[in-house]
Design a protein around this nucleic acid. Structure first.
Lengths: 213, 213
DNA sequence: CGTGTAAAATAACAAGTGTTACAAAACAGG
DNA sequence: CCTGTTTTGTAACACTTGTTATTTTACACG
């Protein structure tokens, strides 16, 4: 009764995502997606209302991609924050453009909290692990570890970071133990302060742990 | 013998720089610069060969702006890396777009090493200060402190960092002291490894300090 | 007070963008 | 094998971009 569809919306999204993965969102145009998908621009606009709509799809796809990456990342460290940190840093190094899109772009559609496995269950687990190891202030520990991890990841974007995975893991452990030993740490009230921030958000969800708030 | 110039190349650059400061390089077009400068696009192309040329000028201006910002930043910490870190983080918070352009953009024109006061004299001073305080491995100390500082700065770009300057200073000091206490740190050979990287570059210039390399 | 000359304004060009009108093609049902 | 319907391709529109040809303007010197 009608012509058979040959370019599905899935194919369009696949193509756009792959391009975003390689070169970022910036230079993705309707005609270039079409060319790469081997069709005209028409199937794109049949599947998506606008290019902005398609870009939203690419973003969602990137978010899901990161969550898979994180979930499947090999568990290679025994101390808290090892896996979270290694996965995050590796993602930045291996998927530079996707990392940019998700974690350093000017218009973040999802918060870090949402991106970390839809509810930061894993973050909670890491904080709990730190608490179990006798960390006096798991909230401050998380804050500092996360800043450090984020720093290593962002540094890799500009080519200023060139440690191997193994070296990175060793450094993370060293840093974690450094923070663990610190006794006169700043009080949690100084760290977790405003509402709506990453830290307070995670504090809210993890405050049954160690009186972080 | 000829008409008097009314729009100098300086005025064009000022305008473009101010726009980049507010909204980044992305949306700067010849017509918008002209509109804001109150002229047509012609004076722009008389002063600059192309828009790319103008953008290069904006970048240079941003680099100089950062160096001034750093040089004039009040000295408010007594421990090593306090001023470097506070200036860097404050710059990221107060000049978000310029920070992006200089330190996280995909095409960095100048290395971090070049941007830090044309020769990283100040970085050397911080490392020396750490060595003077009995830091067993100033090179590793710099590496870790810088990753942390960079992390805090980058985190502020997405609104995930909301500590005050005072809280930031306290945290930096806490982190510095944590790293100072760590005895079983990773060896410098693990940290400074490849040529041409930030760390090896700084290592080259600072290796008279403490056998960093 | 002209007048040549450099600067600025106007307007155009070519290329590229998102998006859409329209025509061609392909398939399922009769 | 038609035929209708939907998908696809073609081509266009309106707009924006960098850049440049052309015209207008204003000044300094004779």
């Amino acid at each position: 009764m009608a012509r058979k569809e040959s370019i599905s919306s899935r194919m369009v999204l696949d193509t756009a995502f792959e391009m975003a993965r390689e070169e970022g969102l910036k230079n993705i145009t309707a005609r270039r997606v079409a060319e790469r998908a081997g069709c005209s621009t028409q199937p794109i606009f049949r599947s998506f209302q606008s290019m902005e709509d398609l870009m939203d799809g690419v973003y969602e796809r990137a978010a899901a991609f990161f969550q898979d990456f994180y979930a499947l990342y090999p568990k290679l460290g025994e101390f808290p924050f090892a896996n979270l940190g290694m996965a995050y840093i590796s993602f930045a190094r291996e998927e530079r453009e996707l990392f940019r899109m998700l974690f350093v772009s000017a218009e973040p559609k999802k918060s870090l909290y949402e991106l970390l496995n839809g509810g930061a269950e894993n973050v909670k687990a890491e904080i709990q692990a730190a608490a179990a190891q006798g960390c006096p202030d798991p909230g401050a520990m998380f804050t500092k570890m996360w800043i450090f991890i984020h720093g290593a990841a962002c540094m890799s974007l500009t080519g200023d970071y060139d440690l191997s995975d193994q070296e990175t893991l060793k450094m993370l452990e060293s840093v974690y133990r450094s923070f663990l030993k610190e006794r006169e740490s700043i009080s949690p009230q100084d760290i977790v302060r405003q509402e709506g921030s990453l830290f307070s958000e995670l504090g809210d969800h993890g405050n049954e742990l160690g009186g972080t708030k």
